Simulated scan of single mutants.
Amino acid sequence: MRFNPRASLDTGRLSDRGGQGLGGGRNGLPIPGGIKAGGGAGMVIVILLVLAVNFFGGNGGSGIPGGMLDHGAGTDSSRMADSDRYASCRTGADANDDVDCARVAVENSLYAYWSDLFARSGETFRPATMSTFSGATTTGCGQASHQVGPFYCPADQGIYLDTTFFADVLEGQLGGRGGDFVEPYVLAHEYGHHIQNLLGTMGRVRTQRGASSDAVRLELQADCYAGLWTRAAEGTSDVSGVAIIADLDEGDIAEALDSAKAVGDDRIQKRSGGRVEPEGWTHGSSEQRMQWFTRGYESGDLQACDTFGADRL
């Protein structure tokens, strides 16, 4: 993955919390790509949302279904204490030289893709914020630690990431092979949860565990949304219309699929020393996660990501 050196970067939606000590974690291997429910500190990744809605009604094609946006409270910007980690990230050239600036460029591309899709559907887009931290941090959904893994908090519409996760957990504990597109895949998955929040899809989750549960359907849809963005990433541009991403190749897709495989529920159960028990799944198997990312990538169609309408996952 290479960024266009001429692209301008916007750091306004990102912040870094620095180190805030350890705590608030949970035992066992983390399951990345999750949602942290609102409430007290130390809550596990679990979805406690009700109110079913008909997500895939309204508009046809790849547009945003009309009338389904949840325009709740805006982002809590008071939580966005900043260590100036991203202050030097100004251009795509910086993104090619620095992993922190690459994170900014990926966020900018995700913002450009989803805001454009919403605009073409006549809807106002409200972006997610993105915060990195070390050790632990406080969010609108309670305290989060390194052991939670990357997650999205619906309460403050923020994506949270301890950047040591990729080397320490995804590669070290879960056996992923790594690569420069691993983090973009994870960030795109988390941004997919933000889109689900805006569209009201989270309200469809009633069953929390099992291979065909609503929780799994929500996670697989976020993988599919990550595939949608990946397909369109080279076409995203900065505020001046300059392309953000210069090159995204088959090697990047292979890295995304390898990461999806690494974070499958069956893979995590095996690596944690247990049996594969589909009744305990919350995110989907390795095969399912790769399949739904691929579906989004190959189709480029939002409606192709209707995991809630699928008879088989």
Rank of each mutant, 00 (worst) to 15 (best):
D249Q: 02
D249H: 05
D249W: 04
E250P: 00
E250M: 14
E250H: 14
E250Q: 15
E250N: 15
G251T: 06
G251K: 05
G251Y: 08
G251C: 06
G251V: 00
D252Q: 07
D252K: 02
D252H: 06
I253Q: 02
I253D: 00
I253F: 03
I253M: 01
I253S: 03
A254V: 12
A254K: 14
A254C: 08
A254D: 15
A254Q: 13
A254M: 08
E255T: 05
E255S: 08
E255C: 02
A256H: 00
A256M: 01
A256D: 02
L257D: 05
L257R: 09
L257V: 05
D258W: 00
D258Q: 10
D258S: 12
D258P: 07
S259W: 06
S259C: 05
S259M: 06
S259H: 04
S259K: 00
S259G: 00
A260F: 00
A260N: 02
A260K: 03
K261H: 09
K261P: 00
K261A: 07
K261N: 02
K261Q: 04
K261M: 01
K261W: 06
A262T: 11
A262N: 07
A262C: 05
A262F: 04
A262Y: 08
A262L: 05
A262S: 12
A262V: 12
V263C: 00
V263W: 03
V263E: 04
V263I: 15
V263A: 04
G264H: 12
G264R: 09
G264P: 15
G264A: 07
G264I: 08
D265P: 15
D265R: 13
D265H: 11
D266G: 09
D266V: 03
D266T: 04
D266R: 07
R267T: 13
R267Q: 15
R267W: 03
R267L: 02
I268Y: 04
I268C: 01
I268E: 02
I268M: 03
I268S: 01
Q269E: 14
Q269G: 09
Q269S: 08
K270V: 11
K270P: 00
K270F: 09
K270R: 15
R271M: 10
R271F: 02
R271E: 07
R271V: 12
S272R: 08
S272Y: 06
S272P: 08
S272K: 10
S272C: 05
S272I: 06
S272D: 10
S272V: 02
G273F: 13
G273K: 15
G273R: 15
G273V: 13
G273H: 14
G274Q: 11
G274L: 13
G274D: 06
G274E: 05
G274M: 13
R275C: 07
R275N: 11
R275I: 07
V276F: 11
E277D: 12
E277I: 07
E277R: 11
E277P: 02
P278G: 05
P278T: 10
P278F: 06
P278I: 07
P278K: 10
P278Q: 11
E279K: 14
E279L: 08
E279H: 14
E279I: 12
G280R: 14
G280K: 11
W281S: 13
W281C: 08
W281H: 14
T282H: 05
T282P: 10
T282R: 15
T282M: 13
T282C: 04
T282K: 14
T282E: 14
H283V: 08
H283R: 12
H283F: 10
H283L: 09
H283C: 05
H283P: 10
H283G: 09
